[in-house]
Amino acid sequence: MIRRFLLLLAGLSALGASPAAAFWEYGHQTVGAIALSQVQPRTRAAIAGLLRQQKILETPTCPMRTIEEASVWPDCIKTLGDRFSYAYSWHFQDFDVCKPFDFKANCANGNCASAQIARAQRMLADRKLPARDRLMALAFLVHFVGDIHQPLHAADAHDDAGGNGTKASYGAIGGRTNLHAIWDGLLADRAISTPPGGPAGLLSGTTVEERKTLAQGSIEDWMHQSWEVAKDVVYPSAVGDVCALPPGTKASGKLDEAKIQTLIPVMRAQVLKGGLRLARMLDEALDGDHPEVAHPPRAKAG
Rank of each mutant, 00 (worst) to 15 (best):
I2T: 13
L15P: 06
W24S: 12
Q29M: 13
T30D: 07
G32M: 15
I34M: 12
V39E: 15
V39K: 02
G49C: 13
R52A: 15
K55S: 07
K55C: 10
I56T: 11
M64C: 08
E68V: 15
E69T: 07
V72Y: 08
C76S: 12
C76H: 04
T79A: 13
F84E: 01
Y88T: 05
F92L: 02
D96A: 09
C98Q: 05
F101V: 04
D102T: 02
A108D: 14
C112Q: 09
A115E: 08
Q116P: 02
Q121S: 01
L124F: 04
L124M: 02
M136S: 06
A137Y: 04
F140V: 08
V142Q: 10
H143A: 13
V145K: 14
G146M: 09
P151Y: 08
A155R: 13
D160Y: 08
G163H: 09
G165L: 00
G174E: 15
G175Y: 04
N178Q: 12
N178A: 10
L179M: 05
W183D: 02
G185Y: 13
L187P: 12
A188D: 03
A191Y: 03
P196Y: 06
P199N: 10
A200M: 10
G201F: 04
L202M: 05
E210K: 09
E210D: 04
K212I: 00
L214Q: 15
L214A: 12
G217E: 05
H224Q: 05
S226E: 06
W227M: 05
V229F: 13
P236D: 08
D241N: 07
V242R: 01
P246T: 05
T249S: 03
L255A: 07
L263R: 08
Q270H: 14
K273A: 13
G275C: 13
G275N: 13
A279D: 15
R280H: 03
R280C: 02
E284W: 06
P291A: 10
P296Q: 00
P296H: 01
A301S: 09
